[in-house]
Amino acid sequence: MERKSFLSSLFIHACALLLAAVVLAPLVWLFVMSISPAADLTEKPLRWWPQAIDFSRYGVLLSRVENSAGAAFLASLVNSIVVAGMATIAALTLAIPAAWAVSRTPAIGWSLSMVIATYMLPPVALAVPLYFGLSHLGLLNNVFGLALVYLTILAPFTTWLMKSGFDAIPREIEAAAMMDGAGLFATLRIITLPLAAPVVATSALFAFLLAWDEFFYALLFTSDLRAKTLTVAIADLAGGRVSDYGLIATAGVLAALPPVAIGLVMQRALISGLTSGGVKG
């Protein structure tokens, strides 16, 4: 469409704005809640914009005084970063060779389907066996134990995602590298991985988000600050007799920042189209 009428372009812009509003409204409301005085949040009818802007809750959550809400929050923030980070790195380390192997050897594709099938089971079905397993290994209430559990979720998912990425890289490029004398490891390192960078970055981002947002296993397998993650810590804030909705919202805003930061860093790698020019087309 080279020429668009004024009306149709107005319509398209209106739709885009509406979509943006729908996506952004909860986030904006979360932020507004985090800076509203407690009274404003329980008032009827609801006050959409606070009378006074109150950043004090950020101070509360980021305070490092011992045994305060802030210390608990920061400890869980660190736990979340450690658990999600470890699980993501371990998942990628396993998934890159696995996905490459499955992509280049169609005969063993069934094995990936079987792993994906286990992924379909509801988490609750695995909760009890996992609990006994972790308890046996002495890994309950431990960041390593939780990362291990997350790995079982992330590895199949990232393998599956990256397989489709490797599938898109022409096999002839690897055959050419092989004839040029590159070994398996050199081919993967110099040729295949750089071409697969966008899908590796996407997998890493999704894996991290999946681990970051996980609540069920974290609730079951952690009990105190040594391993408790953010999702559980936020739930704890809501679990008392008096809930400060503003405080929950503040925790939500802070919890959203690390994934956003990672997403921004990864954005460059997420730009695809790096494979163009290698083969015809």
Binding site: I173, A175, A176, L274, G277, G278, K280
Partner: peptide, 10 residues
């Protein structure tokens, strides 16, 4: 190769 199979990143 028919498709050239060049290394696009190099």
């Amino acid at each position: 190769f028919q498709s050239y199979a060049l290394y696009p990143n190099l």
